[in-house]
Amino acid sequence: MIAALLIPAVTFAQKPLPKTYDLLVGAYTNGKSKGITVFRFYAETGRLAYLSQIDDVSNPSYLTVSADSKFVYAVNENDKGEVSSFSFDPKMGALKFINKQLTLGGAPCYVSVDKANKSLFVANYSGGNIAVLPLNEDGSIAPSVQTIGDSGPFGPNKDRQEKAHVHTAVLSPDEKYVFYTDLGTDKLHITRYKPGKDSPLSGVKPPFVSVTPGGGPRHLDFSLDKKHLYLVQEMGSAVTMFDYNSGKLTPKQTVTLLKDGYTGATGAADIHVSPNGLFLYASNRGDANDISVFSINQETGELTFVDRRAINGKTPRNFVIDPTGNFLLVANQNSDVVYVYKLDKNTGKMLGIVYKVEVGNPVCLKFAPAQ
């Protein structure tokens, strides 16, 4: 069951030009959700309208959309790791299953694709590796041609860092490198990417950067000028800023996501730079249940704390900022709801909720241009 509630919008002086996007919602399917849901997003108001749903897609916990919006790829986060491909009709917001392949690792939790739609990169959390799968012209996925992982040493948290746990596989802005985070080893790995080869990923020197032991690196994003990389650490509830240059990372700053004296449960999750490049947002689960906002120094890339916003739902695992930069949408995994918050593009602060939709166990939000 999907329901929508319109809440009075926050008044703002200038409205953006009317634009529409498709919002794809990935979810865990052990509750109310049965697959991937698609909404039409109206960037003028923040309103969402239900378009379609494709069922019988097991645990599509992370999605990616091809650069031409013709295809959608979704991990199937199960012990038998798989990744599925779909054709996508942006006019109707409709998905059609094409095929799926094994990811050669358990619990895949992240998927990305290059702009040419030649290669798919999947992070296997319990498998502790990333897999590279070629793509065919019809959007279908071919069997994996390469896997890469780390054999240790592992971090100090014996319960969480007993082995490698890979969370992301992210292409650099110029797509010459692929970065992958390993919560188990406290490393951010760097590999060179050359499409069209049997082994598209190769080593670089240095092959990784490390974070504070027990930090648990998770997700990352680049600055708008591509000179800095921001890494959120799940267990440490912190963000580290690196200077970035042609595959090389130099750590410069680490900031906490926690209030002074905070002792409750945490679990930092997602991180995004605003479309105008002025602000960075990072979510924290557990008892914190909030999103922190930082301003970005446009010369140095360093972060300054701006605000911390408590989230109305539970467990803000994933969030997304709409392409106009006017709204921030939060997927609340444990309260079956996606909230739309108005953003102040001048201060970076999250203002009031303008809309919400109910979706079972939402854990991934992706935008695609509507037609």
Score class of each variant (00 low, 15 high):
Pro153Ile: 11
Ser112Asn: 10
Val337His: 02
Lys80Glu: 15
Lys34Gln: 13
Val10Gly: 09
Lys248Leu: 12
Val320Phe: 01
Ile321Lys: 03
Ser223Ala: 08
Ala331Lys: 04
Ala142Gly: 12
Ile321Trp: 02
Tyr281Arg: 00
Leu229Val: 12
Lys34Trp: 12
Lys176Arg: 12
Gln53Pro: 10
Pro213Trp: 05
Asn332His: 09
Ala43Lys: 00
Asn99Gly: 08
Asp22His: 11
Tyr73His: 06
Asn346Trp: 07
Cys109Trp: 00
Asn245Gln: 12
Leu120Trp: 01
Val10Met: 11
Tyr50Val: 10
Ile2Asp: 08
Phe305Gly: 13
Val211Gln: 05
Ser85Tyr: 02
Tyr262Ser: 14
Phe327Pro: 00
Pro206Gly: 10
Pro60Glu: 05
Lys158Met: 10
Phe305Asn: 13
Gly105Cys: 06
Tyr180Pro: 06
Tyr42His: 12
Tyr50Gly: 07
Ile2Phe: 10
Asp260Ala: 11
Tyr244Glu: 04
Gly236Val: 07
Gly26Tyr: 03
Met92Gln: 15
Thr315Ala: 06
Gly128Asp: 00
Thr103Ser: 05
Val320Asn: 01
Val170Asn: 04
Val38Trp: 00
Pro323His: 11
Lys80Ala: 15
Val354Leu: 08
Phe327Gln: 00
Pro206Ser: 07
Leu6Lys: 15
Ala116Trp: 15
Tyr281Ser: 03
Val354Tyr: 06
Asn59Ile: 03
Glu137Met: 09
Tyr262Lys: 15
Gly139His: 01
Phe208Ile: 10
Leu102Met: 08
Lys366Phe: 09
Gln146Glu: 06
Gly93His: 00
Glu44His: 11
Val340Pro: 00
Pro275Arg: 01
Tyr110Asn: 10
Ala282Leu: 07
Lys366Gly: 06
Val293Lys: 00
Ala94Leu: 15
Asn99Val: 08
Phe208Ser: 11
Asn124Thr: 06
Thr168Ala: 08
Val111Asp: 02
Leu249Trp: 07
Asp114Val: 09
Ser335Trp: 06
Gln371Leu: 15
Thr11Pro: 09
Ser69Phe: 11
Gly313Trp: 03
Leu329Gln: 02
